[in-house]
């Protein structure tokens, strides 16, 4: 069976039944950051803790990446197989806006304020055959 590994440890809880994004929160000023960092970018304190940021958010702004990016983009695609993807900032319950890819739905134009659910998807396969898993979002189904 293909082994799946996260694109980077510590970005999201995984494997998990209901994965969440992970960030850090300053124990002094309470500001959150993603990805987690040791120092607080708001107040400069060096005391932060890992915190779950949630798995449903609201789209704050967006665009569509319509052409295949060059390096440092690293995927299995070719310019022929490349599929445009959404990129946006998603306002998370944890109190921070996280930049993320999101899945585009045929015939549906993204809009500010739309509700999005976190998904962990295979992004590419590395040299040793492992699937690299990346966080993304898809429109929430109510």
């Amino acid at each position: 069976m293909t082994q799946q590994i996260a694109i980077k440890e510590g970005l999201f809880t995984w494997p998990a039944e209901k994965p969440e994004l992970l960030g850090s929160r300053c124990i002094h000023c309470g500001e959150a950051a993603f990805p987690a960092q040791n120092d607080c970018r708001a107040c400069g304190s060096r005391e932060t803790e890992i915190t779950a940021l949630g798995n449903r958010g609201t789209l704050w702004t967006w665009t569509i990446q319509s052409f295949m990016p060059k390096s440092p983009y690293l995927s299995d695609e070719t310019p022929e197989t490349f599929k445009p993807y959404g990129v946006g900032y998603v306002e998370m319950p944890g109190g921070v806006r996280v930049e993320s890819r999101f899945e585009l739905i045929e015939g549906q134009v993204p809009h500010i304020g739309m509700s999005l659910d976190l998904v962990i998807l295979p992004f590419r396969t590395d040299e040793s055959g492992q699937e690299i898993m990346m966080f993304s979002f898809k429109p929430a189904e109510e």
Binding site: I7, K8, L11, T61, T63, P69, L74, V87
Partner: peptide
């Protein structure tokens, strides 16, 4: 920044300016 940020296709200035203006229009 860590490599995953660039590898996953989010490190493009064109995207940023588009997102900044999308919000500004709104």
């Amino acid at each position: 920044l860590d490599d995953w940020y660039g590898e996953s296709g989010m490190m493009l200035t064109t995207q940023f300016f588009a997102m900044k203006f999308q919000r500004y229009m709104h």
